[in-house]
């Protein structure tokens, strides 16, 4: 199945085409999405840790909108990048590590949204203590996901 995915006409176009609009653009989109996802998570986590306390909770909720937009971009571009190299990537341990780190980081970000930026928090500037440890975990996990992603080119 992975082999068929990799040999599909679409995969062949992505890797075979000389056009800058094929593989290089999809790869770059994946990096743009990364900047939006982790950039948003970075600002959210800093806010939880007490930086920018005067940014109202209601406004911070908009940052989660960017976060999920970036995630949609990277889910789509990531699926294509997987398809063109499916057999190799499916068996690459560091790729599975990356996916696991992202899954946990996503769950943590959703939990931060619920406990620190829900409507109950409106008008407050401090965040509950357990949100702080989640924010630290989020920063570490996203950085680790980036490292795992980068090391996919080497391991």
């Amino acid at each position: 199945m992975l082999q068929r995915l990799q040999d599909s006409a679409f995969s062949m176009w992505v890797v075979g085409s000389d056009s800058l609009w094929s593989y290089p653009t999809i790869l770059t989109l994946h990096t743009v999405g990364l900047a939006i996802i982790v950039g948003s998570a970075f600002v959210i986590d800093l806010r939880v840790l007490g930086i920018g306390r005067d940014v109202p909770v209601q406004q911070m909720r908009k940052v989660f909108g960017f976060f999920w937009t970036g995630f949609a971009v990277n889910l789509a571009s990531g699926l294509v990048l997987f398809a063109v190299d499916a057999v190799h990537k499916a068996g690459q341990p560091v790729f599975l590590v990356k996916l696991t780190l992202i899954a946990v980081a996503i769950v943590i970000t959703a939990r931060i949204r619920r406990i620190a930026f829900g409507t109950a928090a409106d008008g407050t500037s401090t965040t509950p203590g357990d949100a702080r440890s989640l924010a630290v975990a989020s920063l570490v996990l996203w950085a680790a996901a980036i490292i795992a992603g980068r090391l996919m080119a080497y391991l």
């Binding site: 900047a35 939006i36 970075f42």
Partner: peptide
């Protein structure tokens, strides 16, 4: 890896 982490910090905060 550091370069990629740095870019997310910059684009997040500056953005």
């Amino acid at each position: 890896s550091i370069h990629f982490i740095g870019l997310t910090m910059l684009i997040g905060a500056a953005g």
